[in-house]
Design a protein around this nucleic acid. Sequence first.
DNA 1: AAAATAAACTTGTACGTACAAGTTGAAATT
DNA 2: AATTTCAACTTGTACGTACAAGTTTATTTT
Lengths: 242, 242
Amino acid sequence: MESSAQYQLLYHRLKKEILADVYPIGSVLPSENDLCAAASLSRSTVRQALSQLETEGYITKQKGKGSIVKSKSRSLNLLSFHGFSAMVDKTKMSTLSVQEPTFMPWPEDFPFELSELEKGAGCIHFARVRSVARRPVMYELTFVPNLNLPRFVRQFKLNQSFFEFLAKEYQLEITGMEQQIWAVAANSIHTQHLQVESNTPLLKINRKYHSNRSHLHLYSILYCDTEKYALGNTSGVINQSL
Amino acid sequence: MESSAQYQLLYHRLKKEILADVYPIGSVLPSENDLCAAASLSRSTVRQALSQLETEGYITKQKGKGSIVKSKSRSLNLLSFHGFSAMVDKTKMSTLSVQEPTFMPWPEDFPFELSELEKGAGCIHFARVRSVARRPVMYELTFVPNLNLPRFVRQFKLNQSFFEFLAKEYQLEITGMEQQIWAVAANSIHTQHLQVESNTPLLKINRKYHSNRSHLHLYSILYCDTEKYALGNTSGVINQSL
DNA sequence: AAAATAAACTTGTACGTACAAGTTGAAATT
DNA sequence: AATTTCAACTTGTACGTACAAGTTTATTTT
């Protein structure tokens, strides 16, 4: 962490504590004045930290009441499976390795444009199948340019979170992404991995992730069986008021 | 406009001026000190307005340089068609009315949960087909609760932008949305409107839009033929957890 | 002329004060 | 006991100061 600003330090601390359930969802954070006293900071500085938590969706503030913890992450938004009414139980999710991480040249029909830097570096590729309640729902192909990611092939285990691994091992954070979405008919590869009949409609998503290393992008190709679980996400600033 | 706060007034003024090309994309806003002097405000207040413009994606700030206009809207991200490499020519897009706006009760199998307020109000419904280069690509069903939207049925023309109409007529702004996405096989209704063969894979998207009126939501059901054009979007700062 | 330096900008961080306005619960009144 | 009132919270808005740090332009020096 190289953020030396006081409000950034407080922001990170509060975010960690929210994620660690020190302040569970629905609970109220200490008041601004309490945070001032505890951290020996001015109210302006404390408010700057809280403001960042608010814009990132972790808390909502209510005049007269306080700062209420809203959610523990805003990234569920990007790629989460939903049942028809309730969120899928995370304990029922599992990941199967289809292709262990290997170093290889970029595929010839790679659907994304690559920079010269990326082309020259070659890529690391792996593939996984995600299941919910033992039912395969997503077949995911990931491609990473081999740029300053030492020991990746050996150290990354496919059953762990890819993004968390990148953050912990390389201080690499995902800052944004572009995606394109199609509906396609399942071919023989998909029928095998997703256990669906041929020509079943599948969601195909091509994703390019941007990171805090300006020239390093990650690429994913996803095939999703939405027969039972829809792919859901949320975007923008949503007003609460349950 | 019922925002009496000074920073809100400045925020709205600057936003309008950005949209009106007083400050085109890439240009630099007046410096914070200039804005202070011009509006007789303190720098904190000016910074609060600029901060809001920044989090909403209108400007980026750069230390030492200034506030640079980034984009004129943040909602195009939500729904745009892409060709394989370049954006589709907007002049080739057209809209066909399938169902003119009519007042009706909510459908019995409506896929979203409705509040009691919305249920009681009934809904306004209309449907459109969007085409790119004379090829139908999207069949869109829209449902709006009949809440304080006078003259809607009479005044809204289906070939105009729905969101722009709401903004201009009712000062209604879209602040966010939730969506669920499926891949489905085309049935007889879709084959008719989208001119595709039966069982063609289609993208189905259910959307709930949130607005600046906290109890007013808009609902859309979309069917997209992605044979030729993918549905693309970009999302800003996101977090890990995959 | 070229390079180093300094001055004059810009935004970023951090401190402080004061009061407005919404919420809550205890105290006083009925 | 029920209601009203008020005090003690909470966040929101707005003002001010001071300095740090990045960028650009003008000046001075080489």
